[in-house]
Write a protein that binds this DNA or RNA. Structure first.
Lengths: 204, 204
DNA sequence: GTCTATACGTTGATAGAC
DNA sequence: GTCTATCAACGTATAGAC
């Protein structure tokens, strides 16, 4: 059984993590202050330091939770053997992530733009391995003539960039879309269009 | 004739602008300090404030110079009437920009991710107009059956995202590419692959 | 475990000598 | 026009009362 204190602890940590993701996405690591995060979390500033010791520590935890989700979404690539179904599922999964977790995507983009000081090791190990395994799958599709011969690496970057664009450049897209955010229907249409682009780019 | 002082002034401003772009790209607006910029420019900190008054002012000037270049690159879209030539030229132009000016692209991405506080007005006016004019061109291509029917907006976003990815996510790409930066030949190959993806996505 | 009050470092900006 | 010395504001982190 969880006692009262443990429940409070988990609740507070959840509030802090959500607030931190919000503030880190909006202001970047340096621009985010523990004061802003504490106000967003509706907790005193000292509590932030009580739970996470340092701001950098908190940032690391936020990134870690993001990459766990990222790896989950990546699994969609392997749900089907045939390229059309596998790619459709993967792109839909990535677009859904951009829709529901744009803040997470922005924190991630920010971290990479600034040279991946914290997640560098993850990129070198886990992500690199994931990519190389998927490259093998794509090469298999090419060799069996199921898709056009393309550079598998460049193809994966195409998928990542176009799907993440809808999260990271949300604000630009909103302004160019008559100042209105996408409705759910509009976003679903964009998702299907992105799926078509990705399939067409390898001849499907 | 320019006198000595004017020459020194221009030289110093150039040094400061380059240093500022470098530091803003690497650390973001908040993370960039006037101290870091001055050291990068090899000038005393007070000179930064003498020439640009405030850090925000300097940031605005950097963004302005970037969007001027951006608009220049955008002209490549109109060099040819036929979709194949026009799109090839435009994508090559964008990829070349990502290769030669990755710092500028990163500063821009950072600004958008954080909600476009400074360039919001530009997006609402100049960029919106540019986009709508190009959408008309794309619709023309679709109506005359030259390319497949696609959502023109989503298509432009595809081009922007995939080309800018090579600048903004440079570090991630480098790590995934066995820790090596692209050679000129490799980048040229990626460029041609991106051109093929973009053309294929509309049936060319 | 929680929070107020505060110490200490950093940073943007400027005054004033040269 | 240039630069050293300095200040005021802010931000991270913690001590210590509750």
């Amino acid at each position: 059984m969880k006692d009262q204190k443990e429940i409070v602890r988990e609740l507070n940590q959840k509030k802090i993590m959500e607030a931190a993701e919000f503030v880190f996405a909006q202001y970047g690591f340096k621009g985010a202050t523990t004061d802003k995060i504490s106000k967003q979390a509706e907790l005193p500033k000292a509590n932030i330091h009580y739970y996470y010791k340092t701001k950098e520590n908190l940032y690391r935890e936020v990134l870690e939770s993001i990459l766990n989700e990222w790896m989950d979404a990546a699994k969609a690539f392997d749900d089907f053997d045939e390229p059309r179904a596998a790619l459709t599922k993967y792109v839909e999964s990535k677009m859904s992530y951009s829709r529901t977790r744009p803040l997470a995507s922005k924190v991630w983009a920010n971290e990479i733009i600034h040279g991946a000081p914290v997640v560098g090791t993850f990129l070198e190990t886990t992500l690199k391995q994931w990519l190389e395994d998927r490259i093998k799958v794509i090469r298999g599709w090419i060799e069996s003539g199921k898709i056009n011969p393309v550079d598998p690496r460049a193809f994966i970057y195409l998928i990542w960039s176009v799907t993440q664009h809808y999260a990271d450049f949300e604000r630009q897209i909103e302004i160019l879309n008559q100042g209105e955010k996408f409705t759910d229907e509009e976003f679903e249409q964009k998702t299907q269009q992105v799926v078509q682009f990705v399939l067409a780019s390898v001849g499907l």
